[in-house]
Design a protein around this nucleic acid. Structure first.
Lengths: 163, 163
DNA sequence: AGCAATCAAGTTATACTATAACAAAACAGC
DNA sequence: GCTGTTTTGTTATAGTATAACTTGATTGCT
């Protein structure tokens, strides 16, 4: 689906701008308010371009003149999650920008344990498999947490030359 | 694989006894020490038969005369996880007994949001799907977190009659 | 524009989850 | 029994998240 995270030479600033632009558009369409603090949180998350912890965002909020107590950032994160603009990575207690916020979906992530780059995959195939297993036992799926940790292509190369 | 959690009439005490028996056996085989505090933690986890938080275990440890500071339980949990006897559920910050500790494997869980019963599925099918997606982008999988939340059969029945 | 209702942000306090670091005790092999 | 190793006790603290109440901004109505 979207594996920019594993490509070395992509235009990061372009990523950020595009994500923000789309967020503004979506929020307008949905009549949701992408307030300054919410937009800043989203921008910071995209700037990191890796899963980032809530508390890591606080200093930048403070610098920008906002209140930098935890509830501020958690409230922004809650909003952004509701709008599908960011996902939470449970195994890392961290948050990452969603490259496809236009329609609600479950996340499915590949997370490099070394460089922490994270790629969101199409959750479709995994969902189909899970749906089948769940149906077999009569379970109704509402939410899926699929987080895969390992080594991205770049870091595999690195490990090989180290050894 | 093992869906006891969704079957209403299973012999719970038997579950617990069997899990403990197998744990003792495995640890002996592996020359690992299933000390009293470790065994107690394992027993408590199986008694709950649902994901249970580390701090919820502390009172019972205190009653049994052990130190009940967090490190005690976290160390026991770490050991039990290393031995494959329990899994951690990242999306709940909780721990659950593993019904198949005899060989290392990734967990794949169905978690009922209402009654909190949790069933560990065979991770094979999901793993195959993930492996394929990962290979396509050159990612090497090391660890999988697959946690599905929804409604178990029993609770679906309950919701129907409520509405 | 003025008002009321709603939503968002500020603020303080605290709950929950997990680990670091060092001391004491228990255990295993010689 | 001595010694090195593993486990447990103990104290302190780091890291993550939310409750509850106050203040401020925005919206929609008249």
């Amino acid at each position: 689906m979207d594996n920019l995270a594993f490509e070395s030479g992509h235009d990061h600033q372009h990523c950020i701008d595009q994500a923000l632009q789309q967020a503004r558009l979506l929020c307008r369409e949905r009549q949701q308010r992408l307030t300054p603090v919410r937009e800043l949180v989203l921008k910071l998350i995209w700037q990191s371009h890796q899963p980032i912890g809530a508390y890591e965002l606080l200093p930048a909020l403070a610098e920008a003149g906002f209140n930098s107590a935890p509830p501020t950032v958690y409230r922004a994160l809650e909003f952004l999650q509701e709008q599908g603009l960011v996902h939470r990575i449970a195994s890392l207690n961290a948050f990452v920008g969603c490259p496809h916020p236009e329609q609600a979906h479950q996340g499915c992530f590949l997370i490099c344990r070394q460089c922490h780059s994270t790629s969101e995959l199409d959750a479709g195939p995994v969902h189909a498999t899970l749906e089948q297993s769940a149906r077999a036992v009569g379970f109704t799926i509402e939410q899926e947490t699929v987080e895969v940790t390992g080594l991205c292509p770049n870091c595999q190369a690195g490990e090989g030359s180290d050894a």
